[in-house]
């Protein structure tokens, strides 16, 4: 079993200039180590939709790799996105699913069913390839080659659950950060600082 911290560290070491779309507990760890914050989006106010935002980014900028650090509970809530992604078949999308079997941010309640195998589900939907890792050494050694292979690729990572005992990390401030991150990312990807204020946060 892999810790969130180790999984995020290994992914960060291989990201290069890939866009990183994170959600839930992954966002907390990713923000602590990322050296490219203007290529990061923490989906803090778009329940379960990290994989769909990542698909849009991958289709919109096909020359740049997109890493999606998804969660098992989130993916169950947006399971059809596996078929949508497989259908569009973006070669630059790498879909990581952190599988801990629980809803961490709400205190560790179990998912509706245990033992869902996300790599097998993605394979059945038609992803180009799938992988499943239970120890960090195997993930670390395989990752560079995986990120050179054509997507869409789903990489299931079995992680140790970290139920939050004192409520969620997601706050009004984290929700307010996402629109700013999205504008910074658009500026980085397009070179244009042309997305003005809108919505309740800015």
């Amino acid at each position: 079993m892999i810790t969130y911290a180790d999984a995020c560290r290994v992914l960060n070491e291989s990201r290069g200039e890939a866009v990183a779309v994170t959600t839930m507990t992954q966002t907390k760890y990713w923000n602590q180590i990322s050296k490219e914050p203007d290529l990061d989006i923490g989906i803090a106010n778009g329940m379960s939709k990290a994989s769909s935002v990542a698909l849009g980014l991958a289709l919109g900028d096909p020359e740049r790799s997109v890493l999606c650090l998804d969660a098992d509970g989130s993916l169950l809530m947006n399971f059809g996105s596996l078929a949508t992604i497989a259908g569009m078949a973006p070669k630059n999308l790498y879909h990581f699913v952190f599988n801990n079997g629980i809803y961490s941010v709400t205190g560790g309640q179990p998912l509706p069913t245990a033992g869902v195998e996300y790599a097998k589900a993605a394979e059945a939907c038609g992803y180009a390839s799938t992988h499943r890792f239970e120890d960090v050494e195997s993930l670390d050694s395989a990752l560079p080659e995986i990120l050179r292979s054509p997507g869409p690729v789903l990489i299931e990572i079995i992680v140790k659950g970290e139920p939050q005992a004192e409520g969620v990390d997601q706050t009004w401030e984290s929700n307010a950060k996402m629109p700013l991150q999205l504008r910074a990312l658009r500026k980085r990807l397009t070179g244009n600082d042309d997305w003005g204020p809108g919505g309740p946060f800015i």
Binding site: S52, N78, G87
Partner: peptide, 26 residues
Amino acid sequence: ITMVPVSREGEAIPVAAGLFVAGQNP
């Protein structure tokens, strides 16, 4: 115009958001 078929309507706006951030006009 590229068609992007989704499996459920709740995916459509997030996909469009990603496309817009990448400089597209969905």
